Simulated scan of single mutants.
Amino acid sequence: MSREDFRQLPLHKKIQTLYTEGTFIVGIRYYSHKVNLYLLGEEYIEVFYNHKLDKIDNIDFLNTGHTRMKFYLDQIQLSI
């Protein structure tokens, strides 16, 4: 599945795809979110869960230039 195909999926299909075809890598806390990192094929995908609202706010591809990377790299070795 291409990046564009994944981005076009409705939220519930993204969730289903990640849970059935993806591999959970690590979870971090980031401000008001718990962010779970998954590997889907060769792509890393972040799932932003807002625990105060009890909902997933966003699912998108990992931005390796974002400052969140330091939280991941403190815990695991990513092959990017």
Rank of each mutant, 00 (worst) to 15 (best):
M1V: 12
S2P: 08
S2C: 05
R3Y: 06
R3T: 08
E4A: 13
E4S: 14
F6V: 06
F6E: 07
R7W: 05
R7L: 15
P10M: 11
P10W: 10
L11P: 04
K13T: 09
K13E: 14
K14Q: 03
T17K: 13
T17F: 04
T17L: 14
T17W: 04
T17V: 12
L18K: 10
T20A: 08
T20W: 00
E21W: 00
T23R: 14
F24T: 09
I25R: 02
G27E: 15
I28P: 06
R29Q: 14
R29G: 07
Y30A: 04
Y30F: 12
Y31C: 08
S32C: 11
S32G: 06
S32W: 12
H33W: 14
H33C: 06
H33A: 08
K34N: 11
K34F: 12
V35I: 12
N36I: 00
L37R: 01
Y38A: 09
Y38S: 05
L40P: 03
L40N: 01
L40K: 01
L40S: 03
G41Q: 10
E42I: 09
E43K: 09
I45F: 01
I45K: 05
I45Q: 08
I45G: 03
E46C: 01
E46H: 01
V47G: 03
F48N: 04
Y49G: 04
Y49N: 10
N50L: 04
H51E: 15
K52P: 02
L53M: 07
L53F: 04
D54H: 13
K55F: 03
K55A: 12
K55C: 13
K55E: 14
D57W: 01
N58L: 08
I59N: 10
I59H: 10
F61K: 05
T64E: 12
T64Y: 11
T64H: 11
H66N: 15
H66R: 09
T67Y: 13
T67L: 13
T67F: 15
K70W: 00
F71I: 04
F71Y: 15
Y72N: 04
L73D: 07
L73H: 12
L73N: 11
D74M: 07
D74V: 02
Q75V: 09
Q77L: 12
L78Y: 09
L78T: 10
L78M: 12
S79T: 06
S79K: 09
I80R: 06
I80P: 02
